[in-house]
Amino acid sequence: MFEAARDALHIPPVLGWGLVVVAVALVAGSVAAWRPGGGAELRARMASWWVMAALLVLALLLGWPAMTLLFAGASFLALREFLSLAPLRREDRLVVLFAYLTVPFVYGLVALDRYTVFLIAVPVYFFITTPFLLAVAGQTRGFLAAAAVFQWAALTCVSNIAYVPFLMRTPDAEAPAGAAGLVFFLLLVTEMNDVLQYVCGKLFGRHKIAPTVSPNKTWEGFLGGWGLTAALIVGLAPVFTPFSRIETLIAAALLPLAGFAGDVTMSAIKRDLGVKDTSRLIPGHGGVLDRLDSLTFTAPLYFHLLAAYALERF
């Protein structure tokens, strides 16, 4: 029955096993959380993991249109969190509305399969349009800071996140577990890097790595998470990606670093604003941006590594 369902949904066997492993991890986490003394926060966190995993698995199975819709929604929520917390001026109000247009625009380019326009849509055209609109709005006090807020918000929350559904458009023949396998690998590695850095920090953490930005992060957590995630990448890359041996090593060295960088950079913003979470949308996790912070850095890097070395398509 399992195989019949798998064939009907065109799931490569190895991806099926990957999903089974994720399900087992979720069950194990839930059992731990619902033991007596598990704590309401941990339970809320696990319940949210189930919902997020279900949405992602559904999108992985349904293909790029579903993945595009899911990430367009996530980008809108992340962008709304970013623009709401960042210091903008009263005069910027309608430019905020304009910035939301990047979501249908960029994800529309994913749907229309316009790869080159997709690459420059935000970093060239949104970047020059927004400062002009801010000039039209007429407030020059804090102009550069406001322009930087808009540009960085659109780049991280929309453009960088949209690489994920674009990767789903890779022809299945180009990767050993299909396009869904490529995306699954990125999401798994990014989330496991977060989890492993956290766990290593809890177990062995002694020396603070960024005391003024993220006081809970330690060298031990960073290096331990890096090493374990790199090992995970080396072990699983041949199963899910078309990377050669040397390309796998480059990915193993860079992706955990990018995840850490995304996490710390978002922490610096939150500390600047004096908030712990970007919102309370996801129980036990915080905001969408809290959950996506590492992915805003790993997604474009992983995509560009694949495009440069391994995929014919891009």
């Binding site: 709304r80 969190e81 709401s84 917390l85 309608l94 905020v96 509305l97 939301y100 919102s279």
Partner: peptide, 9 residues
């Protein structure tokens, strides 16, 4: 006085 809502948290 505004007619156009702008989504913000």
């Amino acid at each position: 006085g505004a007619r156009m809502p702008v989504p913000m948290n």
